[in-house]
Write a protein that binds this DNA or RNA. Structure first.
Lengths: 358, 358
DNA sequence: GGCTCGAATGTAAACGTTTTCATGGAAATA
DNA sequence: TATTTCCATGAAAACGTTTACATTCGAGCC
């Protein structure tokens, strides 16, 4: 049995800026670099004793492996990149939260690049990430299939989040905007509302389009609906609310394509002396934290954003481990959160309100 | 003058998963790898013609340098790490926004590791980042000077954000919690309030302690104040509000150490039939987005969180470029945002309310 | 016209790991 | 005891860059 002696080479004072490498550990431990590498990486063919010894020396020397050197030979960076648009607020933080949580669980590092406003910036960010990550998560309104083919190395596993890209070469995970809008519409119908206004999002926005579509295609024949143009901003919701307040023949319920517009709309309505939901019901989409604090609390569609991030990363890991399965498109369900801004079913507005079947 | 011929080696079809290296570019361009490296990195001693030619070939081949290989020899990763606690909502997103913006401007990548709940997780995250980043931004209630000395390579430039660590070896950038609380207290005094309740944050929280201190040391002799224990949660604010509502001798104004508690408190007060600010004034700290949407909108202290991130990164870059200047401690000013939850000065509560000098 | 000089390029040695292959020696078998 | 087998370890070759040093070649100088 081999025993190790503590050589006096232990000049811990060497750390005047010099970085400790695997060679230092090897020399100090009296073994070869190969053994150190094996011991520290948990290779099978190394004695428990050597492993302990090496680990001890490494700890004492404060050795931490040089990531770049390792990546160079391993061809893995243990890092995934997240390319995000210029996001604000809760959505952004929840998304990163979800991604980070899943990444942590997988032992992956997370390289983020957010707040790029146009395609050129996105391209630059993409370029900078390439060769530094094992996989890529992309959410950006500025990228389409052509952009990706142009700027993305085909070998890099990628998952798109909330993307309009329907190309069969790319995997994606989308919030089920369509289903959510549909669920909300059915919910409102079930409560007896028949006369609707829908405040739309920006016309070039994919989420907005899906939500509108979900609403449109769920309206039953007996109901009526008209659209008000919005752009997801509180301001545009406010304008829509003023328009509504000015109408002599107001709809029974307003469905805004996102919560911020619903809040803006609510302000305009309240300002005009209208009561919500007494005079007019109001619903939003997103379930941002504010939604439950305003008066009345807002009925809305909850999007589990952290789950979006989490799911996207899991999907990405699956693709990283085996590129075999063709890229898939998944969606993430939403749920209606009924609050006081719409009446509950108890007081029906119609003589015979036939509840919609789920 | 040397001219380049397009050799027929241009089998673009090679990209069946194989990564293009600098050698491929060199061979294709008919020059050495050194020249390619120089041309692409903008070294002076390379002909404009060669540079163009090489750049063209590189672009055609979709060459993107292997980051790890470059880092290995350069000893720079062009990446900074951000170690963050388990953060929610706006604070988190704004912080990352600020950091990312500044990093982008500097051409740095951002490696984030958030949502670690205890010291052990923080240590693991720290370890994982070490050797992958050129500098580190740390915000964590779980790290103190001893922790850093233990787990952090001394050679790695670091800037702490909102940290209680006062060790002279570490640079930091803190929100001026003390100054903000002081400004708010003076503001309330200037409005004529003299009888206060202060809802504290968690006792082990640094921000909370500073805010309390700022309040305490700004109370003038003619005023009275008592404390209610809270923990930054809405729930604890609600409890404090119930206590206040139950008192027969209520204070004139409540200053909560953060907005969430103020909101909880507001609910309790409203529930008890008290009017804000008519019966009792209310102020918070943070200016979270909800603050302006509740009824009445909340007077609070605005913290420019994005600026915190931005400033911290700039500070870090300065330290990365030259480790010479000893680590410095900076603070970031806050501002009072007067809203309807406290009376404005027009209706004074005291016969002679002497406005406090700024 | 031989010499030096400098600019443009090539050669090769790092950088710190992992990993293949070789090697030694102990245990197991004959 | 001689041979085989296997297991722990060591030596050295990658990995893809950058960069110090060497080389070439043309121009300018005397």
């Amino acid at each position: 049995m081999k025993t190790f002696t503590f050589e006096p080479t232990c000049r811990t004072g060497k750390g005047n800026g010099t970085v400790v490498t695997i060679k230092d550990v090897a020399r100090e431990a009296g073994v070869s670099v190969a053994t150190v590498s094996r011991a520290l990486n948990g290779a099978a063919s190394v004695t428990a004793q050597t492993r302990r010894h090496v680990a001890g020396v490494a700890a004492r020397l404060r050795y931490v492996p040089h990531g770049a050197a390792r990546s160079l030979v391993t061809r893995r960076t243990n890092t995934v990149g997240a390319l995000l648009p210029d996001l604000f607020g809760e959505f952004f933080s929840e998304l990163i939260r979800g991604i980070d949580l899943a990444a942590r669980a997988r032992g992956l590092q997370l390289l983020v690049s957010s707040s790029h406003g146009d395609a050129a910036e996105a391209a630059a960010a993409l370029r900078a990430m390439q060769g530094r990550v094992d996989g890529l998560l992309i959410m950006s309104p500025h990228v389409d299939a052509r952009f990706l083919k142009e700027h993305l190395a085909s070998a890099l596993p990628t998952v798109l989040m909330n993307s309009s890209v329907a190309d069969k070469d790319y995997a994606s995970l989308n919030v089920d905007n369509y289903g959510g809008a549909q669920a909300m519409t059915r919910h409102l119908l079930a409560q007896g509302y028949r006369d609707f206004a829908f405040i739309t999002g920006p016309s070039d926005n994919f989420d907005a389009a899906e939500r509108l579509k979900g609403f449109r295609e769920s309206i039953v024949a007996s109901a009526r609906a008209f659209l008000l143009q919005g752009d997801f901003s509180e301001e545009s919701g406010y304008r829509a609310g003023r328009q509504l307040a000015a109408m002599q023949q107001r709809p029974q319920a307003v469905f805004a394509a996102n919560d911020m517009m619903a809040i803006g709309c609510l302000f305009a309505l309240t300002e005009a002396g209208l009561r919500v939901p007494g005079d007019i019901a109001l619903a939003g989409f997103d379930d941002i934290p504010i939604a439950r604090y305003i008066n009345p609390p807002l009925t809305t569609v909850r999007v589990r954003i952290a789950d979006l991030g989490h799911g996207a990363l899991e999907h990405l890991v699956a693709r990283m481990e085996t590129m075999d399965p063709p890229p898939q498109r998944h969606t993430l369900a939403c749920e209606v959160v009924p609050r006081a801004s719409t009446d509950d079913a108890s007081d029906a507005r119609l003589p015979a309100s036939t509840p919609h079947r789920p």
